[in-house]
Design a protein around this nucleic acid. Structure first.
Lengths: 261, 261
DNA sequence: GCTTGCACCTCCAGTTACGTCAGGAGGTAG
DNA sequence: CTACCTCCTGACGTAACTGGAGGTGCAAGC
């Protein structure tokens, strides 16, 4: 009557879906220590061990490390005192989830761009990814120092709009890299600069530009650091000079600060 | 003119937000190997290194391991050939996301239960978590061998319904553990059994019960393994005997298979 | 001239939760 | 008798770092 069914490790492993090695490990760290056959030394798992293992895997999915689990499985009940740590686990999971969602968004946009373009400069693609990743931070940063409607206009774009911007961004960067080093009065360079500024205008919008011009220097320096540039310092210098040239020779609407970092 | 600004590791670390230790590590594994000052041995990072590091972190968020990243950063452009691996990364991320979502659901339900009950037997809580975790598997399993409307009725419950079921489940399990060992003709035990069966009926629904009775034995054995029981084998045996007693003495609607495993 | 502090260096070890051998024991089937 | 199966222990490998010990070079303060 008192004979309870015992399982060898292989059987137990199959019943519970936990690998033999994992069971060895749990025994080793004292998390689940089954009886041992006195002569053969084989581990003998009981039905109680099934329950304990269930506890272990359940607590594992809640995000607890094995060391903490070892403390928890002793107690026969759980009480509200646990909620404090549960909230922490939840917060950690939610952060991870956001990261994963950002990663999926990045991947989707990169896939689309690559399909449309075929081949893209790696630095351009990487700066695109960075901007997607930091979009949330950027939004928060902006909300602290710009009017809400400006932020909304800047960041709440539809999917197609975003795709269009991605494409425009890639195209323009490609042009910059193609024309890099040419003289500023080259008509192609002139066109590039005009396109570049037009795209920036369209993207940013008028109110936003005004808002940025009212920011202090420190803030706008921080702003450009949010957008990692896909250009080498040389390309960047060339681009700035070309813009300056263009503006002085065309009397193109001058932003009060010619420098782009 | 050719003098490019170089950064010491501390400065570089602050500019890029990557820890000094990580930069050491990337140097060690040959991922980002800056110039070194010939006498002091200090690492000297250039502006190009900024771009490289940007690539590294961007590829890292896409889920690539550092070893692969090392191969990728050599190439100046990326092309559609990358999409194949990007789809894989995406799928992996989506799986992780689902796991995390299941974990968050579990945590939420556990928090609610603990708040309402104050204290809950750990085995009961753990089996609840297991059932939440395996809900997706269970659904798939059921869809392969039961009519769709049965599955829907069983699993597509509203949030409140789920909460109510959780509570009922906890309450009944508590009762089982409290009354365990008492004689079967005890009025409390009788009431427990009736409640237990009524709750099961309500939860499962009539059609579902009929559907289950038509299943073959193998399948229904697999089914109970999907729901890990929160009871010890002794409690389980007692409960089964109590149910049998109750049915024979009350002529309560008898399921063709008295055993609950 | 000596000490203190700082930023940097290298080398070694530890982390999590296992996976993957290697070598050996005991029992059974052909 | 050998092959095979399941079990054992023990040791090393993994990814992407983090941490600490112990040492160097340099500038400032006493």
């Amino acid at each position: 009557m008192g004979e309870q069914k015992k399982y060898l490790i292989g059987e137990f492993s199959e019943r519970t879906g936990t690998s033999v090695r994992t069971l060895h490990y749990y025994d080793e760290i004292g998390l689940l220590t089954p009886e041992k056959h006195p002569v053969s030394g084989h581990r003998l798992y009981s039905d109680r061990d099934v329950l304990t293992l269930q506890k272990i895997v359940s607590l594992k999915v809640l995000g607890y490390p094995l060391e903490q689990i070892a403390d928890m499985i002793c107690k026969p009940t759980f009480d509200v005192g646990l909620n404090e740590s549960l909230y922490l686990q939840k917060k950690a999971f939610e952060e991870k989830k956001e990261q994963i969602e950002a990663a999926i968004t990045s991947i989707n946009r990169v896939i689309t761009i690559l399909e449309e373009e075929g081949e893209v400069d790696s630095a351009v693609l990487m700066s695109l990814i960075s901007s997607i990743q930091t979009e949330k931070d950027l939004k928060q940063w902006l909300e602290e120092r710009a009017p809400k409607e400006v932020v909304d206009q800047l960041l709440n774009k539809s999917e197609e709009e975003k795709l269009g911007l991605d494409k425009a961004y890639v195209q323009l960067s490609k042009e910059v890299k193609r024309l890099f080093g040419k003289p500023f009065d080259d008509p192609e360079v002139q066109k590039l600069i005009l396109d570049y500024m037009k795209a920036t205008m369209e993207f940013v919008g008028e109110e936003a530009i005004k808002a940025f011009q009212q920011m202090d220097v420190q803030d706008s320096e921080q702003l450009v650091e949010h957008y990692p540039s896909p250009f080498t310092p040389e390309e960047e210098a060339w681009l700035n000079q070309a813009m300056e040239y263009c503006m002085t020779h065309r009397h193109f609407m001058p932003p009060e600060d010619g420098e782009r970092k």
